[in-house]
Computed example of a mutant assay.
Amino acid sequence: MARVTAQTDTRQGILDTAYGLVGARGFSGVGLNEILTSAGVPKGSFYHYFSSKEAFGEALLADYFETYLAALDTTLAEPGLTHAERLMNYWRKWQATQGSIDYQRKCLAVKLAAEVSDLSEAMRLALKRGTAAIIERLSHSVAAGVAEGSLTVESDPQTAAEDLYHVWLGASLMAKIVRADGPFEAAIGTTRRILGLPSP
């Protein structure tokens, strides 16, 4: 049992080390040697855990989305708040995370979508699964908000959730280009309109 735990810890250590490096320079911009040196793992050990760099990238995304979705579930179930308030808290956390210079916290979906979708079908599908799971959770929260009366949407909850996620992906990319919070502030306004919420 201890051996399995050690193997699991080593594999997770490689993934954890890669987050900051890949978040800073992208998937193609970081070599395996750098990741393994930073993780303190011999190069020969890498292929014991991952069959290729592509398989490693797929595993990195799967691990990222598992953690992300757990945090999202917590945010969307925060007690004492309406579903509208929980959703707005999620977007504010998104802004705080994407506006940070801490690459460990950056959204890998934002960072890698354009880069790897044309390079790796496996990684593209990992991104597709992860983002679909996010949108599904947002859709359920929107539907619950409509039912409780804390928000209103002109479309169905699934379409509203897709629109919102697309707005925030775009805002994150533009914020990287202009290096300012203007795109996020615009996204907040658009989000409030989509959810039928008054201006603060």
Rank of each mutant, 00 (worst) to 15 (best):
V41Q: 01
R124T: 08
H48D: 01
R86L: 10
L32G: 10
A77S: 15
A114Y: 01
S120C: 05
T37F: 07
Y47R: 14
R86F: 04
S45T: 14
G44K: 06
P42K: 04
Y68K: 05
V142L: 06
A77N: 13
T74S: 02
Y68L: 06
W91T: 13
H48Q: 14
A96N: 12
F46K: 08
Q95R: 15
G44I: 02
V142P: 10
K43I: 09
E115M: 12
S141E: 09
A55L: 13
Y49R: 15
P42V: 01
S120R: 11
S100L: 08
E78P: 00
V142F: 03
S38L: 06
L69D: 04
H140D: 06
W91I: 08
F50Q: 04
Q98K: 05
T74Y: 01
R124S: 11
V142Q: 03
Q98L: 11
A126R: 07
G99F: 12
I135L: 01
Y90Q: 11
K111P: 02
G31M: 00
D118A: 15
N89A: 13
E115A: 07
L32Q: 15
H83A: 03
A55Y: 04
A133H: 04
E121R: 08
E115W: 13
Q95L: 15
L69Q: 10
M88V: 09
D102N: 13
V41N: 03
L60A: 14
P42G: 12
I101P: 01
Y103C: 02
T82L: 02
V110I: 14
N33C: 06
I135Y: 04
A122L: 10
Y68V: 01
P42T: 01
G44C: 06
S141K: 11
R129S: 10
F46D: 07
L108Q: 08
A71Q: 07
E34T: 05
E34D: 05
G31Q: 00
L119F: 07
A71D: 10
S139G: 11
A109M: 08
R92D: 10
G40M: 03
G80W: 07
L60F: 13
S38M: 04
A62E: 15
T97P: 13
I134T: 02
A126C: 03
L138G: 05
E54M: 09
L112H: 04
M123D: 08
E66Y: 02
T82M: 00
L119H: 08
Q104S: 13
Y47H: 15
A96L: 13
M88Y: 00
I135P: 02
T75R: 09
N33Y: 09
Y103F: 11
A96W: 02
D63Q: 08
I134V: 14
R129D: 09
D102S: 13
K106H: 04
A62D: 14
Y47W: 12
S120T: 11
R129Y: 07
E58V: 12
